[in-house]
């Protein structure tokens, strides 16, 4: 299983965290904006292979997370890296899966621009983020996936969903991918 998530911004979402337990997920694709060392440590303990790309609001993750005696996992001992790659490609079976934060896609989230990026990366599947909104669709034989925000961070986009009081809302989401 491959876990794909992004736009975290804040540390965690309890309802999701209890679903994500070590030993089930083989690889994590994190689409940037990983702004908390504690989340980095959580993800590092969740799967043996954590792949990061750079977001547009990454802050220095070089400060180690404070020890938490109540943590479900070991206290963080890893040196937290700052991702520098804007995009990466992983291969599962015959599928090439590309992933990027999405802030380099202009206009942001534009299907034609995403298709161009997928062709440039020579991938079958392109995962992107940056909009905090889940999307999945097929176009020109390629598959496009935006996992949304795993913590329910609110989109800055002008077409963001609004509640009855006009406040922006976001449905927390992530995706698991199983390739066979």
């Amino acid at each position: 299983l491959v876990l794909c998530l992004g736009d975290l911004f804040i540390p965690d979402r309890a309802n999701f965290k209890k679903l994500l337990t070590p030993g089930k997920i083989g690889q994590i694709l994190c689409l940037g904006n990983l702004t908390s060392p504690s989340v980095y440590t959580f993800l590092r303990n969740l799967a043996p292979d954590l792949q990061l790309v750079k977001g547009d609001f990454d802050i220095s993750l070089s400060t180690p997370a404070p020890p938490n005696p109540n943590a479900a996992y070991a206290a963080p001992t890893d040196q937290v890296p700052v991702p520098t790659a804007l995009s990466k490609v992983v291969t599962h079976g015959g599928l090439r899966i590309g992933f990027t934060h999405g802030h380099t896609i202009v206009p942001p989230g534009d299907p034609d621009s995403l298709l161009i990026a997928a062709r440039q990366m020579d991938v079958d599947v392109l995962c992107w983020g940056g909009t905090c909104k889940f999307e999945a669709y097929e176009m020109e034989g390629k598959f496009f996936v935006n996992p949304g925000s795993a913590t329910g961070a609110v989109s800055w986009s002008p077409d963001a969903e609004l509640d009855s009081e006009g406040e922006a809302v976001s449905t927390p989401s992530f995706v698991l991918m199983d390739v066979s």
Partner: peptide
């Protein structure tokens, strides 16, 4: 061809404001 099965996990609120995890499945065949 290779098949990718996407499991989408979303945290949705019901009418009482209680959050539940909804799972949807989407498939893609190369």
């Amino acid at each position: 061809g290779d098949v990718l099965v996407l499991y989408v996990y979303q945290l949705r609120k019901d009418q009482n404001g209680v959050e539940n995890v909804a799972v949807e499945k989407v498939s893609y065949r190369k």
